[in-house]
Nucleic acid binder design. Structure first.
Length: 281
DNA sequence: AATGGGACCTGCGCGC
DNA sequence: TGCGCGCAGGTCCCAT
């Protein structure tokens, strides 16, 4: 399912393909996936130029602008995507056809198209102005790979959440942004920290390890274009290559790569969580 | 403040 | 073969 590395992969690919392109028309086949009425949504997106593509947390953001006759930007909108569990953003040239789960189609004026697919229909697209976008983005904690996210910053944030279990906390988007069920488990394994450890019981050395591991895991996952569990594919329909490198996620009942003990799976904070009881204390 | 449960969806794998 | 069931997970909302 798409977490930061998957959305980042999509963003990087889209930057190369659609920035500067104009949206000629938009088709919406499932009204509940967009925040406005279909007519309004189309009105706000068709005719706009894609000025940029960004990512924040697990959100994909298209900066839209309309160029007036005097070639001044008259209106600025932002199209925000959340892929949730099964959303896909597909770059379709002329030969790739929509499928059952293709609910939104952007027809670009160069003849190419972008599909938004979502087999479970949990994902959404919201057209918002700059002010609403800012409000939306302010709800998130820091980006793990941002240079402002220092070890001291991480420690400060942890001080406010002493009673939390560490693994669900890492998935809390208001705490830090972009980490979901896969990479929180991987970071805990990498740091040798049991996912149910309370923040207040973590010693400095463990916090340091968690900090380094969070970054390492995310950097590596981006490098391998994410993990294709569930429906995730990149803009070209290609699977991410990180799954074979996952150490605990999805490995319940298998042997720990480090100590050969059996990986356990347990519900923690309502989410399936795999870990090695021997390596993670 | 933190946790637990349900809701939203649909495809898949399991057991019979 | 086919059916029904439970499960999966990101996020929000409500309750304890």
């Amino acid at each position: 399912m798409p977490e930061m590395p998957e959305v980042e992969t999509i963003k990087r690919q889209l930057v190369k393909k659609i920035v500067g392109k104009k949206i000629k028309s938009v088709e919406v086949k499932e009204a509940k996936l967009v925040n406005l009425g279909i007519r309004e949504f189309k009105k706000g997106t068709a005719g706009m130029v894609i000025k940029g593509v960004l990512r924040r947390a697990k959100l994909l953001i298209w900066k839209l602008g309309k160029v007036s006759k005097k070639s001044k930007i008259s209106k600025n909108w932002n199209l925000v995507f959340h892929l949730k569990l099964t959303g896909q953003v597909i770059w379709a040239g002329e030969s790739i056809q929509p499928e059952k789960s293709t609910y939104i189609i952007f027809n670009l004026s160069d003849g190419n198209r972008i599909f938004f697919n979502d087999q479970r229909k949990f994902g959404w697209l919201k057209l918002v102005d700059n002010k609403d976008l800012e409000k939306m983005l302010n709800e998130f904690g820091p980006e793990v790979l941002d240079k402002s996210f220092t070890l001291d910053k991480f420690k400060d944030l942890l001080k406010k959440r002493k009673k939390s279990k560490i693994k669900p906390l890492l998935m809390d988007q208001g705490f830090i942004a972009g980490v979901g069920n896969i990479y929180s488990q991987e970071a805990c394994f990498c740091a040798g920290v049991h996912p149910e450890r309370k923040v207040k019981d973590l010693v400095d050395k463990e916090i340091g390890k968690l900090y380094n591991c969070l970054k390492k895991v995310l950097i590596d996952a981006v490098k391998f274009k994410g993990s294709s569990v569930d429906a995730y594919v990149d803009v070209y329909g290609q699977k991410g290559k990180f799954v074979p490198r996952l150490k605990v996620y999805g490995r319940g009942g298998l042997k720990c790569y480090k100590c050969r003990a059996e990986i356990r799976t347990k519900k923690i904070g309502g989410r399936g969580t795999s870990f090695c009881e021997k390596c993670q204390r």
